Simulated scan of single mutants.
Amino acid sequence: MSAQVHECVGAFVVRGGRVLLGRRTATREFLAGAWDVFGGHVESGESELDALVRELDEEIGIRALRLQRLETIEGAQPVPWRLHLYVVAVWQGEPSNRQPEEHDALRWCERDEAVRCLGAAHPAFERLLDLALAAAAV
């Protein structure tokens, strides 16, 4: 029997050619201390979009008004997971850290800094970041 895949959503929150990242606290089970995009698990009965809108509100206090799907990446560690990634360039509210138990810092990053920060999260993030920045510029 195969392990259940954890369905997750995440967003590159982009403004003015920069992306907002959060540093995961040292106590997080997955990617502790790493910089990452915002998002989380899709709950039972929830759509990807509903989950992402909920997570962005819970984590950084914004209401996404325009979401564009980028693609899905997958991995097997520490458990099987699937991450559906989006870009959010239009929202209501000003991002702030509403869940300090999940993220101990937020940072607006230029492209090259974001690539360095995200390097530990997943090898596809550099290419996806470029897609997100291009999509947000349209």
Rank of each mutant, 00 (worst) to 15 (best):
S96M: 06
I73T: 09
R107A: 08
V19P: 07
T72M: 15
F38W: 08
R54D: 09
L52K: 07
W81N: 09
G17R: 11
P95W: 01
H6I: 07
L56K: 00
R107Q: 15
V5N: 04
W35A: 09
E55K: 12
A3F: 13
A3S: 14
Q77A: 01
G22W: 08
V37K: 03
N97P: 06
H41K: 14
P80Q: 06
V53H: 13
G16E: 05
P100Y: 09
V87E: 00
E74G: 05
E102A: 14
Q77N: 11
H6T: 14
V37H: 09
R66M: 05
P100T: 02
L65V: 02
T72E: 15
Q4K: 13
V37S: 01
G93T: 02
V42I: 10
R98I: 08
L85R: 03
H103C: 06
V88Y: 01
A89G: 11
R107N: 06
W81K: 06
L56S: 07
F12S: 10
P100W: 10
L83M: 06
E29N: 03
G22K: 12
R82Q: 12
S96K: 03
R18K: 14
V88G: 02
F38V: 09
A32T: 04
A34F: 00
G75Q: 00
L52G: 03
V19G: 10
D36T: 14
R98C: 05
E71V: 11
L85P: 00
R98D: 00
E102D: 15
E29C: 04
V5A: 05
V9Y: 08
V88W: 09
A51N: 00
R66D: 13
G10V: 05
G40Q: 11
E29Q: 00
P78Y: 04
E101S: 07
R82G: 05
R66N: 03
L65G: 11
E58R: 15
G33E: 07
R28W: 03
L70G: 10
G39V: 00
E101T: 13
G39Q: 02
L85K: 00
E58T: 15
R23Y: 09
A32K: 06
H41W: 02
V79N: 10
A11C: 07
A51I: 02
Q4I: 14
T25F: 08
I73M: 06
E59A: 14
E7N: 14
A11Y: 01
L70A: 12
V13T: 10
